[in-house]
Amino acid sequence: MNLTLKIWRQQDASTPGAMHTYQLADVSPDMSFLEMLDVLNEQLNAEGEEPIAFDSDCREGICGMCGLMINGDAHGPEVTTTCQLHMRSFSDGETITIEPWRSDAFPVIKDLVVDRSAFDRIIQQGGFISVNTGSAPEAHSVPVPKDDADRAFNVATCIGCGACVAACPNGSASLFMGAKITHLGLLPQGQPERDERVVNMVAQHDHEGFGGCTNIGECTAACPKEIPLDVISQLNKDLRTAIKHGH
């Protein structure tokens, strides 16, 4: 199929960017979206134009490195990551708009590449259980009810891609944060630091310039891992409890 691609190009963080239009012919429906961009980049390179920078690594939907706004949707029209989206989801002759994540907390580095290091800094503020190597008790000493373990797993599947932030009109990272709070809060090992964790992570979230949650739900609709909205209720509940405990 033949496509018209409107793509955001920006030399670096301090230079303003703009949309550029490219034509791409003979796109196979079996290509992944990023392979389509690879082919475009080969074409640009041959023509002497610098290839478009975009992030990806595993290309199997698990590392969270990829992420584009495609026709205004984070990760495009399907519930999956950009790397797992295939061209069969588009049709011949279509015009596709491709932009980076848009959020104050995710500044553009170049073209389609953004800086998501704010996520790491949120985790640094408490997204862990403090246990030094070698000091762990025997694994079977603390049983965990299967339902809790399963649910902890489900929310722990967040890949940190940032689509929730990009999709949110407020640019909130509440879904990302709620997933971690819920994961660790469901496990007995996560209890001792539970109050501190939520208070510190939320403080860092706000400090990074992410917006507040107003329960719109765009985040969960865009999330490739289908992290449910109720992790945000859990986040709020944990925060209230922590405050009640004097934090």
Binding site: T133, A149, D150
Partner: peptide
């Protein structure tokens, strides 16, 4: 064997049986 102990203590959500064991 130490690896499993360490990971469980960190909160790695391994699959569990109904009795709550790994």
């Amino acid at each position: 064997t130490n690896i499993i102990d360490q990971c469980v203590a960190q909160g790695v959500p391994f699959a569990r049986e109904y009795g709550g064991l790994l």
